[in-house]
Every structure is written in C-alpha cells, then in structure tokens.
C-alpha cells in the first residue's frame, strides 16, 4: 500500500501536541521514549505498515506504534439518521533523538 494512503493525516490536537512534547526525561518509565504523535490512518493498515510509512514520510525512527479503531459518530438530519465513517487512530512513539515538525 502507498505510504501516503496509509497515513491519512496527522491529528493536530491539544492532546496530541501535549503527547508529542513529552520528552524522554518526562516519562521515566520508558527511558528510550521520544514524543508520541497521533495520526489518522487507513483502517486496514497494520502496525508494521504504519511504522514503515511514518519512518519513510518523516525520516524518523519509530519506537512503537499503538492503534485503535474509532467508531464513527451517529449523525441525524431531521428524521434521517446517518453515521460518520469508522476510522483508525495510530499513536506513534519516536525514539528520543527524533522529532516531527507538524506545524
């Protein structure tokens, strides 16, 4: 799968920014940990695919990848109900020396 299809977009949110700023010193439980960056990824993408894609796109070294499937929200327009699509979120932890400039 194309790397750019695996990583759909970085999630620039308050939580994501906070996590990306967490340095290796701040999280002593995981000594080799760099910042953690959240992305919306293709729901069919696997962790190894995501790791490869992030490494290729941003030129960084990935320590670990955590994923979760998010259910889409129910939406209603008058009497018609619908649903936003399900999506997959990936939190990619980088090595201490790596950094992604999202802004």
């Amino acid at each position: 799968m194309n790397v750019f299809r695996i990583i759909r977009r970085p999630l620039v949110t308050e939580k994501g920014t906070h996590q990306s700023g967490q340095s290796h010193e701040a999280t002593k439980s995981m000594p080799a940990r760099g910042g953690a960056y959240a992305f919306q990824v293709d729901p069919a993408a696997t962790k190894p695919q995501i790791r490869l894609a992030v490494e290729k796109i941003y030129g960084v070294k990935v320590l670990s990848v955590r994923t979760c499937n998010r259910k889409g929200k129910e939406r209603r327009v008058k009497y018609k109900t619908g649903k936003t699509p399900d999506w997959k979120k990936a939190v990619v932890v980088l090595r201490a020396e790596c950094h992604i400039d999202l802004f």
Binding site: V12, T13, E14
Partner: peptide, 15 residues
C-alpha cells in the same frame, strides 16, 4: 479546531 480556546500552540496560531 482540536484545541480549547487559548490553548493552541503559538506556532500554529502564527501559521
């Protein structure tokens, strides 16, 4: 979007 009012990082606001 994605941030509470006044909590967005300055770089993002600048951009």
């Amino acid at each position: 979007p994605g941030f509470r009012k006044g909590h967005a990082p300055i770089q993002l606001v600048e951009k």
